[in-house]
Amino acid sequence: MFHFSNITRSKGDPKIVEGGSSLKQPSDQLARALGWFSIGLGIVEFFAPRRVTETLGMEGHETMVRAFGVREILAGVMSLSVDKNAGLWARVGGDGLDAAALLSGLTPDNPKKGNIALALLMVGGIAVLDYRAAQDTKPQRPGPNARRKLYPNRSGFPKGLQAAKDRAKEMIQHATAGVTS
């Protein structure tokens, strides 16, 4: 079977013959997809805020859109990091802010309110995915009250701690005698 990574192997080094299974879960893939989506959306919001506000009939709010863009990029980077769970929860919070901002623009005199409704629908859908991914990628570290084994008998000194200390003293005396004699 062809494995792309084999191309980069040094001559003579072992190459992959058959790939094993990955422990990555679908939620990890979803987190990754949401992370990249977040960065993409953030870039659009940061660099083209006027296009966004025009589409939504919310002209004059470019600064807020730009700030949301920065937030999206940071949450996206976090979602791609080993702390993806924190990134995904940041996205869930961001979805709430997005929804609130969109709702504020949903006024009867806004000619683009159809676009806002569509955007709200999208935010709702994405929020469900964000929440699902955040739930599924919870860190599996044991909590502070989890039962733990203790190792009070593992000194590593087969002859006992005192013998180890005595041996150390002996070695120091031997070394000192060597220096002074």
Binding site: P14, I16, V17, E18, G20, S21, S22, L23
Partner: peptide
Amino acid sequence: ALVWHGKEDIRCDTVSDP
């Protein structure tokens, strides 16, 4: 062998012998 495939992705693959 345990092979690195990316962040948090280590797999037990079959590889050619050294």
